[in-house]
Simulated scan of single mutants.
Amino acid sequence: MRKKQPLATYFHVHLVSDSTGETLNAMLKATASQFNAAKPLEHIYALIRSRAQMERALAEIEASPGLVLYTVINPELRRLLEIRCSELQTPAISVLDPLRHAFTDYLGLEQTMKTGAQYQLDDAYFKRIAALDYTLAHDDGQMVWDLEPADVVVVGVSRTSKTPTCMYLANRGIKAANIPLVPTSPPPEELFALRKPMVVGLVASPERLTQIRKSRLGGLNAEAAVEDYSDLDAIRKEVLAAKRLYTKHRWPTIDVTRKSVEETAAAILTKLSARQNR
């Protein structure tokens, strides 16, 4: 007899931030993912920097009671939020306080108490924008004569998530180009002459690639002329050839069969960090 799935538990979560709210959103998703039956109903209040804005957020919290997660620097607004949530008997958690206190104790330095400090238009911001520009211009084998400035060059057969992985890396300030491995033509010679970038090979199981490619072809209403694209035996040969190429050139390899784009990017960042530290 099949085990009954528990009914979903819907609950309100209020994310109150004096910045963009991205940190709160990421922490909520990471935590809620550990509770299969939990379905948070998100209420986002971003750029809360005045008493009037906080009052409006509190009115909505009162109307739909639930967990309150917040990142608010201004002491007056924090106090207002904490007192009202206490009166409403609603849990209110300042998610960054433990980290900030740990940093203060360890470093012996005072906090700047600056709102949205991670989003300043500084060198890191412009580096990230430059990385996004570079990655867009070097997607899917474009501009192979200009790969040397890259931090990472991602190589792989079709549907191994090269483009989304590179875009995720670019958003972290990493210049990432990607080169597709096509059975009908060899990789560009420029790839084998690189010195500065780290070349990373992506692989996936042929069975998984077959599923993805068939789904892709169905969405495009493609004709039978591209049958080899989703043929299992043909894909096995592609993957084997890719693995041999990576081994020959001693490129680090990541199997993306059961990895999300975020996990693949994290694995690349780990390898890149180790390489830079060496």
Rank of each mutant, 00 (worst) to 15 (best):
Ile179Leu: 04
Tyr119Val: 08
Asp231Tyr: 06
Thr264Ile: 03
Ala63Lys: 06
Trp251Asn: 15
Ala222Tyr: 03
Ile48Ala: 10
Phe126Lys: 08
Thr115Met: 06
Asp151Trp: 01
Val226Cys: 06
Lys39Leu: 09
Leu28Val: 03
Ser260Glu: 15
Asp231Asn: 13
Val68Tyr: 02
Val203Ile: 11
Leu107Gln: 02
Leu202Lys: 04
Val239Ser: 15
Met198Arg: 05
Leu96Ala: 07
Tyr125Asp: 13
Ile174Leu: 02
Thr253Trp: 03
Gln89Phe: 01
Ala224Pro: 01
Leu81Lys: 13
Ala92Val: 08
Ile48Lys: 06
Cys166Leu: 05
Ile44Val: 08
Gln142Glu: 13
His138Asp: 09
Asp18Thr: 06
Pro206His: 14
Pro164Thr: 09
Ala102Val: 01
Glu207Lys: 10
Asn171Trp: 00
Leu58Arg: 13
Glu76Gly: 11
Glu189Pro: 01
Met113Ser: 08
Leu240Ser: 15
Ile93Pro: 02
Ile179Tyr: 09
Ala92Cys: 12
Gly201Tyr: 05
Glu42Thr: 05
Asp151Ala: 07
Arg258Tyr: 06
Asp139Leu: 04
Leu109Pro: 00
Glu262Arg: 01
Lys127Met: 07
Pro188Phe: 07
Asp122Met: 10
Asp228Leu: 03
Val72Tyr: 11
Ala8Gly: 12
Ser205Gly: 08
Ala37Asn: 06
Leu107Glu: 06
Ala137Tyr: 02
Tyr119Met: 13
Tyr10Asp: 15
Lys39Ile: 03
Val199Asp: 13
Gly219Trp: 02
Glu207His: 09
Gln118Asp: 13
Ser158Cys: 03
Arg195His: 12
Pro197Gln: 13
Lys29Val: 07
Leu181Asn: 05
Asp255Cys: 06
Leu169Ile: 00
Gln34Thr: 08
Thr23His: 05
Ser185Leu: 05
Asp231Ala: 11
Ala170Cys: 04
Arg216Cys: 03
Ala193Val: 00
Gln276Ile: 03
Thr264Cys: 12
